[in-house]
Nucleic acid binder design. Structure first.
Lengths: 142, 142
DNA sequence: AACAGTACATAGGTTACCTATGCATCGTCC
DNA sequence: GGACGATGCATAGGTAACCTATGTACTGTT
C-alpha cells in the first residue's frame, strides 16, 4: 500500500522533473531559476536556510547563490544577528528575470496543464500541497 | 494560475525527488532501481520504449539496462519483429532485488506517509495519478 | 536498388548534486 | 574570561544522473 505509493511517488516525481525540465528549457538552468524562485518567495534568507528548505546540501545552495549573485539576480547583506551568516534577497533584475522564466515555464507546460479537467486540476493542486507539506516537515533526508 | 502551478510542480517535484532519494538511500542507486522497476512493471520492452516512457534519453536507458544486465537483474532477448531491437525483461534475481528495494523505499518514507490523514493520502494518490497521466501523454519534452 | 527513417551502442560532455574540510563566529559552561 | 562544541558558509574534490552527437546495422517505402 504505502510501499507502492512511495515507489510511485519517486518514479513519477523524477519522471515529471525530467520531462518538465526539458519542456521548459529556456536560457536559464533549472537549478538556478528554482533557487531564485525560492529566494524570491521566502527571502531574505540565509544560504543554509535555502539549503534546508529546498532539501539540497549547503555547498549546493552556496554555489547556486554565488551564480545568482554573479548575474546580479540576488544580493547579499550581513545578517545582523550573526557575523557568520548572510541574508540573500532578490534584486529587481532578479525579479524581472524570474518573471520571464516563470512565464516561459508556464507556456511550456500550458498545453498539458490546459488539457486537464477542472477536477484533475484540483486533484493535482491538492496532491502538490500534500507533497510540499510532506517534505517540509520531514527530517533532512535521513 | 497555471503558471504558478507549473512552477510549483517543478520546484516541489524536484525537491521531493532529492529528499526521498536521500531518505531512501540504499545499496542501489536511484536511477538503477527506477529503471528496474519500470522494466518489471511494463516489460518485456525495448530499450527505446523504456527511454520514452521514463522520459529519459535513449543512451541513458541503454546505459541503465547495461548496468542492470551486468548485475543479472534483467536479461535481453532478440525482438522477433526487428533485428535491431532487443527486449528487456526482469530476471527472478531482479524481481527479488526489486522487492527488497521497494521495501526499503517504503520503510524510508513510511514515517512521513504514515503521518498523512486519510484525506491527504487520497489527495496525494489522486494528484499522482494526474501527474503520471500528464507526463504519459505529453510530447517528449519539447 | 535507393533512400529515409529507426534502434541502439558508444563517445564525449554537461548539469546537478554530494561529502569532507577549513576558517570564523557563536553560545554555553566552568 | 577561557575552553569547547556547535554553527554558517566557502572551497575542494568527487559522484550520479543525465544530455546530444555520431556511427552502424536494420527496416519500410518507393
Amino acid at each position: 500500500m504505502d510501499e507502492t505509493l512511495a515507489v510511485d511517488l519517486l518514479v513519477i516525481a523524477a519522471r515529471f522533473t525530467r520531462w518538465a525540465g526539458r519542456a521548459a528549457d529556456g536560457a536559464m538552468p533549472t537549478a538556478l531559476w528554482r533557487a531564485l524562485s525560492q529566494v524570491d518567495e521566502l527571502g531574505p534568507l540565509r544560504v543554509s536556510a535555502l539549503a534546508a528548505l529546498d532539501r539540497t546540501s549547503q555547498p549546493t545552495a552556496t554555489a547556486l547563490v554565488q551564480r545568482l549573485e554573479r548575474h546580479g539576480w540576488v544580493e547579499r547583506s550581513a545578517d545582523p544577528e550573526d557575523a557568520r551568516a548572510s541574508l540573500v534577497a532578490t534584486t529587481s533584475e532578479g525579479r524581472e528575470r524570474l518573471a520571464e522564466q516563470r512565464a516561459a515555464v508556464g507556456r511550456a507546460l500550458a498545453p498539458r496543464l490546459g488539457a486537464l479537467s477542472g477536477q484533475q486540476h484540483e486533484d493535482l493542486a491538492r496532491g502538490l500541497a500534500v507533497l510540499r507539506d510532506l517534505v517540509a516537515h520531514a527530517p533532512p533526508g535521513g
